[in-house]
Design a binder for these strands. Structure first.
Lengths: 103, 103
DNA sequence: TCAGTAGTTCGATCGTCATCGTACTACGAT
DNA sequence: ATCGTAGTACGATGACGATCGAACTACTGA
């Protein structure tokens, strides 16, 4: 096994500016929507995005460091999932508000 | 009198990416918090901000064009207020979630 | 052990945007 | 009229960040 969780901020270290800035980018918003549709977590590479793998990694890192998502390893794969509980506790309604946008 | 409302997007023209990007900037978030504390509207210049007047005007324009706030003239002054109803209708919970951040 | 796959890291590039100072407009008061 | 005040518009600058390719790491399976 030896799954490992990648470094991320504790709940009380999450700053709303960082969260909003992370969410205010179209590619990252696409990622967040995909994660919201799959509460069990999604393998990074499975999300269809109009960018290369390195850019994808960059966005995932940004979202993780902002506290929006959590990533753990699973073999060579990395599974990401939304930090729903933490975000809901810190900013109740924010996530559902964003996700209810009819885009 | 002759108060005039500055150009702004209709409710159905507001895009969530633009809103989040607008909110993901510390100075603009400060403005939004100040407006939230004064539902009757605030004169732009009354908000204490660590930037010059031209930068302030730039941020207010960004927020207005994103659909976050509405501005109308009042003599030489311009009164801004949050578009609470529109934002709540489009993204229910988003605004309250953001404002509940203990910053 | 070796090849293949998933993903990251690094450095470079390029575009966007936050910031400022200056010049301008608009309105009110004297 | 003209002066002062509130605010905008414009052009320049500098910083940040989105993007890419290439090199690298880590794990799996043959």
């Amino acid at each position: 096994m030896a799954t490992k969780v990648l470094p991320q901020p504790e709940r009380d270290e999450i700053r709303v500016e960082a969260v909003l800035q992370a969410l205010g980018e179209p590619v990252r918003l696409t990622i967040v929507r995909a994660l919201a549709d799959n509460p069990a977590g999604v393998c990074c590479g499975e999300i269809e995005l109009p960018v290369t793998a390195s850019t994808r990694a960059h966005h995932l890192k940004t979202l993780r460091e902002a506290g929006v998502l959590s990533t753990h390893t699973d073999g060579t794969r990395r599974i990401s999932m939304l930090r729903r509980e933490d975000l809901e506790a810190l900013y109740p309604g924010l996530l559902t508000g964003i996700l209810s946008a009819k885009q």
